[in-house]
Nucleic acid binder design. Structure first.
Ligand code: SF4
Ligand code: SF4
Lengths: 165, 165
DNA sequence: TAATTATAGATAAAAATCATCTATAATCAG
DNA sequence: CTGATTATAGATGATTTTTATCTATAATTA
């Protein structure tokens, strides 16, 4: 049970989009070139981010992607669900339905009143609540503090790409 | 990203082992027959539960499995890690290493100081802490309250199997 | 000694994940 | 209007993980 790499790609790329001049979207080609993956691969994640309302897409010449919200309104949890979907971590496979007394049609097991399910859901909500408190704005700000050289280099590169369109 | 079904099987089966007479292990055949799966399948999970110190195995004739600890000392988290392993939910795939300035050997990215990684770890610890508070004893007790008929039937069945060995 | 039982490992089907490529639709610069 | 550019959608396939079973082996006890 692992987070998808897509979450990692999305978080990194969203940081690139912070603090750019308004109405100057960045194309998927540039983003993909920077990340070192194919455009079609990265674009899939951006399509999901669009659907989740995290980024806005501008089609056509000089189109691309830009943040649809303020970075302080985009939480880690938003990104995680945008990429992995809303499905909860624990999905009851209804194994009890295959249990002896059930096979003999003695009982039914309804997952609504399932204790295991409710415990897992509650546990997940603790994870969720924490991830909701961490935003792209926070990430951007702290990356600037922790790895300033890398961040500067990265900003330089995207500003230049924006300039040469 | 989903919990393994193994967790569901393990939690259900551990409840069956609560409140049985001492030194009377239940064989994997009975457990598997009750669950409606093959012994070899279920036994794999029990081997993992043994390695995690949750159950004790008794080989040979009239052998089987019994709880190795008091049910109030077995948490949901214990079971989850026994089955899925200790690996954390977020594993950095080091995607930044393939990023443009890194490909040009300008920088290195050490995951020890990675902010994303630390946020994910902290989030997971919230999930962990909650799952540590819920035990097999709690589950057993509350299942008895919520679905008493099913629990009675289940206890009847295992007691009978124990009797006929 | 023989039957029983856990353990280990081989095997394979099914599902999910990762990654790329192609075709299409929308937009804008000229 | 036209052609280039760009996002979107979907097909495709490789790889990995998950699920499930079967077989062989080792330990134990009746
Ligand atoms: S008790 Fe809960 S987890 Fe188990 S089969 Fe029923 S609904 Fe699913
Ligand atoms: S910044 Fe963190 S998540 Fe990203 S590549 Fe570096 S270590 Fe991995």
């Amino acid at each position: 049970m692992q987070f998808s790499v897509g979450v990692e790609y999305a978080l990194h790329c969203l940081v690139y989009l912070v603090n750019l001049p308004p109405d100057s979207p960045i194309g998927i080609k540039d983003l993909a070139a920077y990340q070192g993956v194919s455009d079609s691969y990265l674009s899939k994640f951006f399509t999901q981010l669009v659907k989740a309302g995290i980024v806005r897409s501008v089609p056509g010449v000089k189109g691309g992607y830009e943040l649809a919200k303020k970075p302080e309104d985009i939480s880690f949890w938003n990104v995680v669900t945008a990429i992995q979907g809303e499905a909860s971590l624990f999905q009851c496979k209804e194994i009890r339905h295959n249990t002896l007394p059930f096979r003999e049609n003695k009982f039914q097991c309804y997952s609504e009143k399932c204790l295991i399910n409710s415990v897992m859901l509650e546990a997940e909500s603790h994870l969720k609540n924490y991830l909701c408190t961490k935003t792209i704005a926070w990430l951007h700000e702290n990356l600037d503090k922790h790895i300033p050289e890398i961040q500067q280099e990265q900003k330089r590169w995207f500003k230049e790409k924006l300039y040469n369109r």
